[in-house]
Simulated assay, not measured.
Amino acid sequence: MLFGYSFSDLGSILVMQGFSGLSLFSVLLLMALGLAIIFGQMGVINMAHGEFMTIGAYSIYVISKITEQYFPGFMAYYFVVAIIAAFVIAFTVGYFVEFLLIRHLYRRPLDTLLATWGLSLIMQQIFRSVFGGREVSPTLPDWLMGSWAPTPNIDIPINGLFVMLITLVVTAIVILALYKSRWGLKVRATTQNRMMAGAVGINTQKVDRMTFAVGCGVAGIAGAAFTTIASTGPTSGSTYIVDTFLVVVFGGAASLLGTVASAFTISQAQSILTFFMTNAMGKVVTLLAIIVILMLRPEGLFSSKVRK
């Protein structure tokens, strides 16, 4: 017996809470991937990043309602198409935000932070005006409902498995794009030495704009994944922004491997600790542990060597 539970019960609890942590890990990783690309290359502290997740979530909701009302026979298939639409919509909004606002604030981190924080408040008010203050949820396809029970004591939700699959696919695409494509080569060159990249003919402004838009698009996919495990409200994205920055800083800016490791560590710690403690205490203990580690290793789990 431990904490009042038998070892068999503890095993089942750890498995189920661990899987619950994997669902949180999936959303955090998708959010952090986009933020790591933006922050790592451009040094932009995007406080509105959570709102791009909300854009993706509301996109799923709107497409769900349109499909349900006008194309009910397509309900079993709409979700995959809606995920792509969520990326495209968040990507497009991010592209114009970079062009209209962010590009004027490079090398001014405090101004960027304040401007994107103001942008997040404006976007939240737009969501509230368009969709109302109440939380909404899309109608999910039947194949996303139910659970898988590998043992009589363990139930694993099907939607959680699907979210993990989305995360694996998107993470693989992002890594391949960064290391096996011309765009990724330009991004890495700009990150390593912006002046030299410009000198050899790379349009660094265009690279910045595309990078910011891609990061926002990945956040839109995070919003799509989020709709399978929770309802969406105007402030849904803001509840994840602190944890997302924590993931990026703890993993090491511009390090995709660090982002993955950090998201997994934080999500699992929070999921397991909040079961045995209150939700607030679980997060406090996790945060204190991260602070201690960062004091010993300020560059994060995986540092990235960047030429200034």
Score class of each variant (00 low, 15 high):
41 Q>K: 08
41 Q>T: 14
42 M>I: 09
42 M>K: 10
42 M>C: 07
43 G>A: 04
43 G>N: 14
43 G>E: 09
44 V>H: 05
45 I>C: 09
45 I>M: 15
45 I>R: 07
46 N>L: 11
46 N>H: 11
46 N>D: 13
46 N>G: 02
46 N>W: 15
46 N>V: 08
46 N>M: 09
47 M>S: 02
47 M>W: 13
47 M>K: 07
49 H>T: 07
49 H>E: 13
49 H>W: 13
50 G>W: 14
51 E>W: 10
52 F>I: 12
52 F>M: 15
52 F>Y: 15
53 M>C: 07
53 M>A: 09
53 M>E: 08
53 M>Q: 08
54 T>P: 11
55 I>H: 02
55 I>D: 01
56 G>M: 10
56 G>D: 04
56 G>V: 14
57 A>R: 03
57 A>S: 13
57 A>W: 05
57 A>Y: 04
58 Y>H: 01
58 Y>Q: 05
58 Y>P: 11
59 S>Y: 01
59 S>F: 01
60 I>A: 12
60 I>H: 03
60 I>C: 10
61 Y>F: 14
61 Y>H: 02
62 V>E: 01
62 V>P: 00
62 V>N: 00
63 I>T: 03
64 S>A: 07
64 S>N: 03
64 S>V: 00
65 K>D: 14
67 T>E: 12
68 E>V: 05
69 Q>T: 10
70 Y>K: 11
70 Y>Q: 12
70 Y>W: 13
70 Y>V: 01
70 Y>T: 00
71 F>M: 12
71 F>W: 12
71 F>K: 09
72 P>K: 13
72 P>W: 11
74 F>S: 02
74 F>K: 01
75 M>F: 08
75 M>D: 01
76 A>L: 12
76 A>I: 11
77 Y>F: 14
77 Y>E: 12
77 Y>D: 09
77 Y>G: 01
77 Y>Q: 11
77 Y>C: 00
78 Y>R: 01
78 Y>T: 02
79 F>H: 07
79 F>K: 04
79 F>P: 00
79 F>I: 10
79 F>Q: 05
80 V>I: 15
80 V>Q: 10
80 V>D: 11
80 V>M: 08
81 V>G: 04
81 V>T: 12
81 V>K: 01
82 A>Y: 03
82 A>C: 03
82 A>T: 03
82 A>L: 08
83 I>Q: 00
83 I>Y: 00
84 I>N: 01
85 A>S: 13
86 A>Y: 00
86 A>F: 00
87 F>N: 06
87 F>S: 05
88 V>G: 05
89 I>V: 15
89 I>M: 02
90 A>K: 04
90 A>V: 09
90 A>M: 03
91 F>A: 05
91 F>S: 07
91 F>W: 12
92 T>V: 14
92 T>G: 03
93 V>C: 02
93 V>E: 10
94 G>W: 10
94 G>A: 04
